[in-house]
Design a binder for these strands. Structure first.
Length: 562
RNA sequence: UGGGGAUUAGUCCAGUGGUAGGACGCCUGACUCUGGAUCAGGAAACGAGGGUUCGAAUCCCCCAUCCCCAGCCA
């Protein structure tokens, strides 16, 4: 059989072409270059998958390089978490772990070379003056009065900048390019600034630090990167990177820009993510509602699901906002295959089976995963009193409601058919607090010998054997597809979903689940996929709902009500 | 109003001169001891206008719209 022709994205197309023409001698070296100033999120995962994927597919390597050129924002904690997250996603940089700060000495040398060529100068303008001199989108800039210092003076001043003789912000080293360029990046960009900050790796060795623009391309060059894949906003920095590389006469990587990822109902910018964390709208960087890798991990996502998602969204140049439903789909798709099924009642309603002998119990056999019989079976205790889901009973059933109601018969999954014979209510509130039922002993195992059919099947948990647990139900963090879509004067915080986290305290879970370890995943039958939270203990188990199962009934029901 | 990018179903991605395809979502139906999964079917798009051509999503022109750039951030 022929398979549908699998098309490759434009980045892979370019790399394949370069290999064909021998542009880099058939070698492929990519890199993932995060700044260690925050946690990785799923937008980064797209880049990680692309860069490491490219290397793997073309028999190359992908470096992990921290672009740590701004000590005022960077921390070792981020360096640690980024490595953890990239590994967890399933990628390995081997021995190729680098830092732009590894190249500070070499970068300084490049700067000296530029000065010696008359292509860079020390400028004494204040930040405000630099801005004024730069001009704007429609008007050209003006040349700095310090632009024509002698090479000797520039060399002397730059060395004294390095020696720490000047105050922070007093001077900068700038490239001498073109103050009238329509590309603002070429209007004598700053190469080095004075920063009295302790760097997480070089300590206090340097009072001056290179700008990202001066470090990035040269770092790629030093590492012999062939394909430098980055996001669209760097497209008009490319002429600047090329200018540096040309002037320095060193290796050029081929830079390729692609569109960053956006996802509905969430935010993917470091600024907004930090704000959510800092202002306490969520509980830390690994809050399961966040699209950070650590948040998704805690939520119960698998690396496989995230990688599948990254494969499916493709790589292109147009701005895009992927529906969060696709992420949830790849998640369910993976979890469905691998998750053992268990029963858990989130909102319990007590059911007393009147004709089942008091004090008796028996074991019900249930398969662990109908999608994968190799996962085996388990035994579940059944007894006279069980819990079912409140939603599985309606005193006055609406049309198409297949579940339990007075006089109606349903199946308790893998156990027996039961018929509702009575309803006990709270006298004060009228709320249904208990159901009286009878069971048919002839339906053991959940099938009747007379061929009688029931429409509904409910999950259940034996009251005497139930594990009490807390379950955290997560929903989209934002109510709107685009959190930034707010009336004038508002901001994205206004769109937060007040019910993005609902904590259920009195859930009744199947025997044994108190022994599940943090990170373990299950499908709670008919409900969704759940995993054990790190907060969990055997005495006080805590489960996170990773994602709900598709629920045709609740959608019908909601549509009917509205 | 300078420069750089981008416009294909609701969404994402293919298709680069020969009847516009996939995925998610949505709608039907089948099946089912999870109203899950699975299976079958369906609705749904080339930003506008010109031109070239036997033939244009693809080539040319023009218009429109959206995104990025005025950090000593990355």
């Amino acid at each position: 059989m022929t398979q549908a022709a699998t098309s490759v994205d434009f980045v892979r197309g370019i790399v394949a072409d370069d290999n064909r023409t021998g542009k880099f001698g058939g070698r492929v070296i990519t890199r993932f270059p995060p700044e260690p100033n925050g946690y990785l999120h799923i937008g980064h995962a797209k880049s990680v998958c692309l860069n490491f994927g490219l290397a793997a597919e073309f028999g190359g390597v992908c470096n992990l390089r921290f672009d740590d050129t701004n000590p005022s924002k960077e921390e070792v904690e981020f360096v640690r978490s980024i490595q953890e997250d990239v590994h967890w996603l399933g990628f390995d940089w081997g021995r190729n772990l680098f830092y732009a700060s590894d190249y500070f000495e070499q970068l300084f040398g490049y700067a000296v070379q530029l000065i010696e060529k008359g292509k860079a100068y020390v400028c004494d303008l204040t930040p405000e003056e630099v801005r004024e001199y730069r001009g704007n989108l429609t008007e050209p800039g003006r040349e700095s009065p310090f632009r024509n210092r002698s090479i000797e003076e520039n060399l002397d001043l730059f060395r004294r900048m390095r020696a720490g003789e000047f105050d922070e912000g007093a001077r900068t080293l700038r490239a001498k390019i073109d103050m009238a360029s329509p590309n603002l990046n070429l209007r004598d960009p700053v190469l080095y600034r004075i920063l009295n900050e302790t760097h997480h790796r070089t300590g206090d060795d340097w009072p001056i630090y290179p700008m990202y623009d001066f470090a990035h391309g040269q770092s790629d060059s030093i590492e012999n990167v062939t394909h430098s894949v980055c996001t669209l906003e760097f497209e008009d920095h490319r002429p600047l990177y090329d200018w540096f590389l040309d002037e320095l006469e060193i290796h050029h990587a081929q830079q390729i820009e692609f569109a960053r990822l956006n996802i509905t109902h969430t935010v993917l910018s470091k600024r907004r993510l930090s704000q959510l964390v800092d202002e306490g709208h969520v509980n830390g960087w690994d809050d399961p509602r966040l699209p950070t890798i650590s948040g998704l991990r805690r939520r119960g996502y698998t690396p496989e699901a995230i990688r599948d998602f990254c494969d499916r969204i493709g790589v292109a140049k147009r701005d895009n906002t992927v529906g969060i439903a696709l992420l949830e789909h790849t998640l369910r798709d993976d979890l469905n295959k691998r998750s053992p099924r268990v029963m858990g009642v989130l909102d319990p309603l007590k059911v007393v089976i009147e004709n089942y002998p008091e004090g008796q119990s028996e074991e019900i056999v249930s398969v662990n995963n109908p999608e994968d019989m190799s996962m085996g079976e388990r035994r579940i205790p059944f007894s006279r009193t069980v819990y079912i889901e409140k939603d599985d009973f309606r005193e006055e059933p609406p049309p198409k409601f297949y579940r339990l109601s007075p006089g109606r018969e349903i199946r308790l999954k893998d156990a027996y058919y039961i018929t509702c014979t009575g309803v006990v209510k709270d006298e004060a509130t009228g709320e249904v607090i208990e159901l009286r039922c009878t069971y048919d002993p002839e339906t053991a195992g959940g099938t009747s010998s007379d061929g009688r059919k029931v429409r509904g099947t409910s999950h259940w948990v034996s009251a005497d054997h139930a594990v009490d647990a807390e379950v955290r139900i997560y929903d989209h963090l934002f109510l709107t597809e685009d959190p930034d879509n707010v009336p004038d004067g508002g901001d994205f915080i206004d769109n937060l979903n007040p019910e993005s986290l609902v904590v259920l305290k009195s859930c009744k879970l199947e025997q044994g689940l108190d022994k599940a370890k943090p990170g373990e995943r299950f499908q709670f039958l008919r409900q969704g996929y759940f995993c054990v939270d790190p907060d969990s203990t055997p005495e006080a188990p805590v489960f996170n709902r990773t994602v709900a199962l598709r629920d045709t009934w609740s959608r019908m029901d909601q549509a009917r009500r509205s």
